[in-house]
């Protein structure tokens, strides 16, 4: 294996490891859940991305043919990270945020969607189920 390729792979692993460490350190350093949601994004983008690119380069040089296996993991993590962050924030708001005190008024006929599942103007989702049953 050529020397400069080894240097590049080692650098990518070291940078990825450091970013994973920083992302998890933010989890214990930050005070509240909503700032804390910000920290693991470092781990899941640069941290994991660096290590997966290092793995891709290593097996390319080792085996002699190029594969994009590892890009699948990166793509999957990039697609799912916003969904998990949104769902965790919604779960936190439902349990720990008081919509009357902590949030501004929604200026609509109905409240904020996380706290008001009934929806606009007397629309009741359970009525749809009743119609289907009969």
């Amino acid at each position: 294996m050529p020397f400069f390729v080894e240097v590049i792979i080692s650098l990518l692993i070291v940078i990825g490891g450091l970013f994973l460490l920083i992302g998890s350190f933010g989890m214990i350093k930050l005070k509240d859940l909503l700032p804390r949601l910000h920290a693991p994004t470092k781990a899941s983008t640069v941290g994991l991305g660096g290590i997966l690119i290092a793995s891709m380069l290593f097996f390319w040089i080792e085996r002699g043919h190029f594969t994009i296996h590892e890009l699948l993991i990166t793509l999957f993590i990039f697609l799912t990270a916003p969904i998990t962050a949104n769902l965790i924030a919604k779960a936190y708001m439902l349990l720990n945020v008081d919509p009357n005190k902590d949030l501004p008024p929604s200026k609509q006929n109905e409240g904020w969607a996380t706290f008001d599942p009934v929806g606009p103007e007397g629309y009741d989702p359970s009525e749809e189920y009743k119609e289907k049953e009969t």
């Binding site: 490891g17 998890s24 859940l33 693991p40 941290g47 290590i51 998990t84 720990n96």
Partner: peptide, 23 residues
Amino acid sequence: PTTADRVLAVDTMAINAIALLVL
């Protein structure tokens, strides 16, 4: 302190476990 913190911790743990397996 909250349930959402624990869910976030498990999610980050999964990411770290992926990195450990690849390494």
